[in-house]
Design a binder for these strands. Structure first.
Lengths: 342, 342
DNA sequence: TTGTACGCGTTATCAG
DNA sequence: CTGATAACGCGTACAA
């Protein structure tokens, strides 16, 4: 009883298969009685359309891929990507698309290319993988499959993207520190090869300049968004720059590492040193002390990316578009007034 | 130049389409010269097979679904699920399956059922969603689609599963505490409706009994695996049970919340109170202090689940199977000797 | 070893 | 409003 196809439905309903198809696809020009008869049979036999055949005939898969790097996920693995996936999925579900998940990791690049990109037909791809965009962009272009990027990519202005406004986010984080009286503020950011990191650093600079504070290149530390790098960087900067009373960390993960390093070194947060993070990952309110940070709308990013790619696929939008979501400052307990200001 | 089909390849290579098909599928009985000619054309025109047509003809999609709950992901969102997905994906990639990602969240159950479960044909499903297994099991059964569960489920002995050995894991965690001289050891576990939580609690009991310590039901706290519940539970237990010198937390997330609560209350870890976690999520080595915990092979769980479902699909295995992966104790700094033992 | 012909389940087109 | 009929691209008996 499992497998019943459109022809059987047609037979049982005493109509032709075209009528069944029209009913199922909500086409007009079908009589109420025919529709009724068809629906009865469909319900009775629990008929479900074969998606492979549908795709074949309709020439579209109604399926998008979401591509991450193993690295992005290691780094972001603190609840970031999961929430993002959820956003993508729910938007797709609402629009009757399904999402295929893919990771690209350097050790499987070969496999990946052959299998994923060649043998499979995706209607669109969401790129959550800054590292590989160059490699992929060309491939995607030649196959003419639409893509949207989550994040920014320097050289890829040709493909649509959605991101949080990194510049204004970090700017408001640092301004917060300034308002608390800090003058010596360090920054811990990611690789400057990433546009995102550049923007977050630019925001830091802007906030200082606006406050009339000269930026000191020596207290700009480059990490890689992991807790480990936050820890290591803080450890080594601590003794070299005792004058710094506050650090802007470009991610909550690095901030968490920094917090651990400060604790290990006997510094008090926020008593001796203030820390502000970026992202507002779910753990941020349970660090010691709870982390003041910049909240970015992760779930919304996912939904937005999905909406953009589907609009693109359906032809509703054709020009490339770069969207910037607004972040918020979330004040918790990791920042205090500068001691001298008391 | 984009779309070229098997017939064109055949024409350009001066062979029939069967030959092309056989070459592409590595079937025997094809002459070297024919194979060579075909491959040349394939390369030259960058021919790629249409997966929809393949699925239709072959009557299988070579695609598995991985189903999570929104809840499971909120809770586990500290890098757990991402690593799991990666394991699933890489195993599937190696075996030329693709993976479709799905979430079930209560607010879209309707949509979900209609779209995902009815209209789509998956060869198998990996369930990472304890809450919905009952609802789904029946559906899956009637549609005769194989499923494997990540985790344990009380009533679902009929479907294969893979999990970490929760019992021995928590047992060794608590034994570690006992070895350090602790006699009053509390437990913070998840809902006892979950088999997993039951097992972790059972391991706790076993370790105490083995050590000749009576278990005190009063110091067993029930949380929900979130940092928040760890925090709240610890806050309320702290004053009610000052005699407890060590807590076994059934997840790193709850342990992190507990750590925050202890710090807030002025207790020192491990000076006053020892904490041991479970999972070894990526943040565990950067909590304050770094968390002693039970490491479970998350990535392996994913690969294993994928392997099991594919074996099932291909008919290589037919009987249900329950696998238990071994966990390890990872000693860091959150546990110390009981003061009285000094 | 190769080629022919048909089936897979839908959708779209075009007469009625 | 309805019903043949032709794609859609590939796999595979079966025949040569």
């Amino acid at each position: 009883m499992s497998k019943i196809n459109i022809d059987q439905v047609a037979r049982y309903a005493f109509v032709s298969r075209s009528v069944v198809s029209r009913v199922l696809n909500n086409h007009p020009h079908v009589s109420d009685v025919a529709r009724e008869r068809v629906m009865n049979v469909v319900r009775k036999y629990n008929y479900q359309r074969n998606s492979a055949a549908r795709s074949l005939a309709a020439k579209n898969m109604r399926e998008i891929g979401i591509l991450s790097t193993r690295n992005a996920n290691d780094v972001m693995s603190n609840g970031f990507s999961t929430l993002l996936y959820l956003g993508v999925f729910e938007e797709c579900l609402a629009q009757r698309y399904s999402v295929r998940q893919m990771f690209i990791s350097t050790d499987m690049k070969e496999e990946f290319q052959k299998f994923i990109l060649n043998e499979h037909t995706l209607d669109g791809v969401i790129l959550f993988a800054e590292e590989v965009t160059d490699l992929l962009a060309a491939k995607l272009m030649t196959r003419e499959i639409p893509a949207v990027l989550i994040g920014h990519a320097p050289g890829l202005s040709g493909i649509s993207s959605v991101d949080v406004d990194n510049f204004s986010g970090s700017c408001s984080a640092v301004s917060h520190l300034v308002r608390l009286g800090h003058r010596n503020i360090g920054a811990m950011v990611g690789s400057q090869l990433l546009q995102e990191s550049q923007d977050r650093l630019a925001g830091y600079r802007k906030a200082l300049v606006d406050a009339g504070i000269a930026v000191n290149e020596d207290v700009i530390a480059i990490g890689d968004y992991t807790q480990r790098s936050g820890y290591d960087q803080m450890m080594s900067r601590l003794r070299r720059h005792p004058e710094v009373t506050a650090w802007f960390c470009a991610s909550d993960t690095m901030a968490m590492g920094a917090l651990a390093a400060l604790h290990k070194s006997g510094r008090r947060v926020p008593g001796d040193i203030s820390i502000v993070g970026f992202d507002d990952l779910s753990f941020a309110r349970y660090t010691i002390p709870p982390l003041t940070t910049i909240r970015q709308p992760i779930y919304q990013k996912g939904r937005c990316a999905a909406r953009m790619i589907i609009d693109r696929i359906s032809g509703k939008k054709t020009e490339v578009e770069h969207r910037n979501l607004k972040p918020d400052l979330v004040i918790r307990e990791s920042c205090g007034r500068h001691a001298g200001v008391l």
